[in-house]
Design a binder for these strands. Structure first.
Lengths: 201, 201
DNA sequence: CCACTCATTGAGTATGTACTCATTTTATCT
DNA sequence: AGATAAAATGAGTACATACTCAATGAGTGG
């Protein structure tokens, strides 16, 4: 057989490590010790280092995977988003899906390896691209107020990140902030940026 | 004499530790080791622990002082702020004054002792109080659009924090983000929340 | 000037965590 | 089945950092 049991085993272990790291980091943050990840994954401590030369390397792999995954997800949503309303609604859906890890990322990115900034940049610029396309179309249609696109974008992201980072202030325990507040954020933001009086500008 | 040289000496050392910690943390973040603070302050490592039982205790003192100082400063500005424009302009001034440490605080508060959350809450609620006073007055005057006050507040703070936390993305090196972008943030935000057509609602 | 007190010192200790590597376990090949 | 190679193990090492404490020496009071 081409794919030996051994190879499968090794790949499984690697995958197990990555998945466990993802979930443990989502719950406890990036400063979780390697020993905890090993324990949680049900493997020996040394095994991690048989698969990844350093913890930083594991982190970089995680971050890059995450960037790809979430980036791809955001890219998709653009296709079915003809309006700001829909785009942002879809954005919130994606965020809810990745909420735990994403929150950790935006909270802790400044003290993570550079890969974290790259991951963040990938996600952000993907979103920004689709956002500005949709917004500019709506501005020229007159449905959105004539305001600088980049500021509209930063305001939306700032607002959403504010809620994600201050989770403990807004939500109790492990509840999803996006689930609880997403609709309010969305409707408020739309009210703020939309032309109430139609196309007359 | 009542105040002996010794007492003065001790107070000076304590002050020196606090001030150095404040500036070192402003530059390098809260995870800076005690040894670096001691070095920078020009005192022995052990001296820190002669003044503060633990590093956490030092941090708590710093945070509580900072909260008091910035809280008081924010409290003052309310008196001369008759309009949102002025209030936010003054807010930006205060932020610029405390930018480095404040940025660290909002970035790292989630992994700091609980005192950090308290400090944050003190600052935030002081600002929120004055903000909502001014905003509600302007809403009833018709100069600000009729939108929920708490969301207006969160949007402003979200936007500002977004810039502070992504400093490296917006500004190079050690330049002040507030200095560079404050005016743009302010004018954009005001444009967004203000009624362009006066009192007709 | 001497005895005493107290702030300061810094080498030493304790602890946590990343990473190593000789050994063990397990799959594969003949 | 026995020999070999790959994967996993976990006790051991290196290092960073918080905190201790006996020793130092400078200010204080008699």
């Amino acid at each position: 057989m081409r794919v030996s049991t051994r190879q499968v085993q090794k790949q499984n272990t690697r995958k197990k490590i990555m998945e466990t790291a993802y979930s443990v980091i989502s719950n406890k943050g990036f400063s979780v010790p390697s020993s905890v990840i090993a324990e949680e994954a049900g493997i020996s401590h040394g095994s991690i280092f048989a698969h990844f030369p350093t913890m930083n390397d594991l982190l970089n792999n995680l971050l890059s995977d995450f960037g790809d995954k979430m980036g791809a997800r955001l890219h998709m949503l653009a296709k079915k988003s003809d309006s700001v309303d829909n785009l942002l609604k879809e954005h919130l859906k994606v965020l809810e899906e990745y909420e735990a890890f994403y929150s950790r990322l935006i909270s802790e990115k400044n003290r993570l390896p550079d890969e974290a900034k790259t991951t963040f940049a990938v996600i952000q610029s993907t979103l920004a691209l689709h956002f500005s396309n949709v917004i500019e179309r709506e501005i020229s249609k007159g449905t959105v107020r004539k305001l600088p696109t980049h500021m509209l974008f930063n305001t939306w992201l700032g607002l959403v990140h504010y809620y994600l980072m201050n989770k403990d202030f807004f939500s109790d325990g492990n509840e999803s902030v996006i689930k609880n507040y997403g609709p309010e954020l969305l409707s408020f933001y739309l009210k703020m940026i939309k032309n109430e009086r139609g196309v007359y500008e």
